[in-house]
């Protein structure tokens, strides 16, 4: 049916667009820390869009409701921030080069 195809296409295109933007961000941002923002953010909606399309496609066309894509989304949402945090932390301890305009961290107040 047309509206189903339109809806599924919408989510595929949305997901694809965000994945693409995330990758462009990875390429364009000037330093490591800023690059980290692209995959943690833009990619969650990128994958989310494709998975939403998958849920719709297999639920509407397949034998019945298909929800295991939701798990992928869920696991992605708990793992993405943790991996980003570990990467950022490792980068900080190794002294990875920052963009020269970055405001540097001092010591925390009262520590």
């Amino acid at each position: 049916m047309l509206w189903q195809e339109a809806l599924i296409s919408f989510f595929v295109v949305l997901g694809g667009a965000f994945a693409l933007v995330g990758s462009i961000g990875l390429l364009r941002f000037p330093d490591f820390y800023q690059r980290l923002h692209a995959p943690t953010k833009a990619t969650t909606l990128g994958v989310g869009g494709v998975l939403a399309a998958s849920v719709l496609f297999f639920s509407l066309r397949g034998p019945g409701l298909s929800l295991h894509e939701l798990l992928v989304t869920f696991f992605l949402f708990i793992t993405a921030p943790v991996s980003a945090h570990l990467l950022a932390r490792a980068a900080r301890h190794c002294g990875v080069r920052m963009h020269p305009d970055t405001r540097k961290p001092g010591q925390p107040d009262g520590a």
């Binding site: 995330g22 961000g25 364009r28 941002f29 953010k41 909606l45 305009d101 405001r103 961290p105 925390p108």
Partner: peptide
Amino acid sequence: DIVVANFWVASLVLRPGSGLRPGFVWFP
């Protein structure tokens, strides 16, 4: 907020020229 974050970061990526002011903050 996650959806908003996606659109916001996407617009930063696509905006030409870098007028960004990155920085670190200690959060108590």
